[in-house]
Design a protein around this nucleic acid. Structure first.
Lengths: 152, 152
DNA sequence: TCTTGACTTCAAGTTAACTTGAAGTTGTAG
DNA sequence: CTACAACTTCAAGTTAACTTGAAGTCAAGA
């Protein structure tokens, strides 16, 4: 099995053929064509697809993955350097995601601990009340109302 | 300001009016109407919206939030018991999310550490290669091919 | 009373990541 | 060489969570 058909790749990667075609339109993977216009994939593509799924697990969008994979070769195993760079980036991303969630949990725990039912002092609820922190950060497009508020 | 208009609520909650109307169609919040058919909200709704945004931060869908908020009163501050139940559930959810990410990070770290460029022994890549673990777990709908594989 | 910003509804558009279906073509086992 | 599973493209559908726009109504200050 020098070349993989789209069906082979689907089975071995666990990704539906429709998804593989979709990835191709997004430039994430590549294929050669037979005389009859059917796709044939290099075995290296299997690894590439695995990388895509792994990246998705980490919460990366296909657009971000397209960027990340751009620097990797389509036709052979990535070098140790390639792989290290990628995994370092991904690890950092995971680290900050974890830190974010832990912060959120701590805030929630504080809320329980302090019994602040008024929610006024809960950090976790503050980002929600724009009026309580006018001008301190980005604002939503509120629509329908109060132009001068939006402009602050 | 006994009653809030939708514009008031939007400004004070930081949520667009279109989103507030949308939440109403989903049963997340309620409103009374003036003689002229305009929405008027109880101040308690402001807290409810804050809860919705907080819940979204935790990764809850609006459908899940609708469930969670169903048990809370629309017309007054939730009781200490209400709040404790909610925050306990949410905390547990956060805990497992954090645990998941940490597991993922550890796997990634192992990958870096072991230099397993072949990716064969990396736990993080295994869920992606269905053929390497036939019959051990749930499978995707692969489409286009190999019926007997799907049936296994 | 008039003006006008704030509101109303309803339909359609948006984005991501695919899936589904239709209609037609290819590749290969028998 | 024939049958038929596997493939092809393209358009449209799916879900979540909204946003945008059109066309019309309400409310409140001057």
């Amino acid at each position: 099995m020098e070349w993989l058909t789209i069906g082979d790749l689907a089975i071995r990667s666990g990704v539906a053929t429709s998804a593989l075609r979709f990835y191709e339109t997004k430039g994430l993977i590549r294929s050669e064509r037979t005389d009859g216009n059917q796709r044939r994939y290099l075995r290296a593509t299997l690894r590439r697809v695995a990388l895509i799924r792994a990246g998705q697990e980490l919460g990366l969008s296909l657009a971000e993955l397209a960027d990340a994979l751009e620097t990797l070769p389509h036709d052979r195993t990535p070098t140790k350097t390639d792989w290290k760079r990628l995994s370092r980036t991904w690890r950092q991303r995971l680290d900050s995601q974890i830190a974010e969630l832990i912060a959120l949990r701590d805030e929630l725990t504080d809320c329980i601990g302090c019994g602040c039912l008024s929610l006024k002092s809960c950090a976790i609820f503050n980002p929600g009340d724009a009026a309580s922190s006018l001008g301190t950060g980005p604002r939503y497009l509120l629509g329908d109302t109060s132009e001068e508020f939006v402009k602050t």
